[in-house]
């Protein structure tokens, strides 16, 4: 095997946290989407991401030497221990905001999981192959909506434009390499986020153009530090909701 378990662990943790936190955010749409059909669509995507996070946490427990299970990672870590980027954690906006965020995150997932599907870690490669296929569907869902909202009515176009302004500050962080990722690639394992910038944003730009929208605008500031456990206020509320049941009733089953 190229690399080592200790080398893989932070990469797997980052992927798992990205998936879990976005699953939790997307789950908020159930009963709030414009149509019951869309409730189901976003719920399905959230469940795909949750399933992916569960597999990754299980793998992580064997990689980082702690033997923790999926629930330990999801329910018994505090804010500073989560290693996802900021984009999935920011508060749910309107439907245009969500489709924009989904387009970006799913496009990133398609590329990075496709790259990992051929890695030497068989377990991770299996999760990645499944993840890449799932994310192609998620991306297609976002694409269909961005095209319709962008080229739809004056109102939907304006909301898409506002959504692009809202997500813009969080885009750079998606493609910022961490020391762990650099160390992994130096050892022949994993993929550098910076190398995915062009394919991901190229895909997104093509969709935006087709949707008669301008590209993601330049932002006056950029989020950073998510991979080091630095998060925004929004995460506190998100994990409080996600964790309170387990923490109030440890070991409860139903």
């Amino acid at each position: 095997m190229t690399g080592s378990p200790a080398l893989h662990a932070p990469l797997v943790e980052a992927l798992a946290d990205d998936a879990l936190i976005y699953a939790q955010r997307l789950g908020e749409w159930i009963s709030r989407a414009p149509q019951i059909e869309e409730d189901m669509a976003l719920g399905n995507i959230a469940l795909d991401l949750l399933g992916r996070a569960r597999s990754l946490y299980t793998l992580l427990g064997s990689l980082d030497g702690t033997g923790r299970c999926e629930d330990d990672y999801a329910y018994w870590r505090d804010e500073r221990e989560f290693r996802h980027v900021h984009l999935p954690e920011i508060e749910r906006g309107d439907f245009a905001d969500e489709m924009t965020r989904l387009l970006l995150l799913s496009s990133l997932d398609v590329e990075r999981y496709a790259a990992l599907a051929s890695c030497d870690d068989v377990a991770l490669a299996g999760i990645a192959a499944k993840g890449s296929a799932e994310s192609r569907y998620h991306r297609d869902h976002a694409r269909l909506w961005v095209l319709r909202l962008g080229a739809g009515t004056r109102e939907s176009h304006a909301r898409m434009t506002a959504a692009l302004v809202r997500v813009a500050p969080y885009v750079d962080e998606l493609f910022t390499d961490t020391a762990a990722e650099q160390a992994g690639v130096d050892a022949g394992f994993g993929v550098l986020p910076s190398s995915l910038r062009e394919p991901v944003l190229g895909f997104v730009s093509a969709i935006l153009t087709e949707a008669t929208l301008d590209d993601v605008p330049d932002a006056g500031w950029h989020s950073r530090g998510g991979r080091d456990g630095i998060h925004s206020e929004a995460l506190g509320y998100l994990i409080a909701e996600m964790q309170h049941l387990t923490r109030s009733h440890p070991g409860a089953t139903w």
């Binding site: 669509a41 399905n44 869902h141």
Partner: peptide, 8 residues
Amino acid sequence: LALHNARD
């Protein structure tokens, strides 16, 4: 979108 919704 009908096809997508049907899949879901």
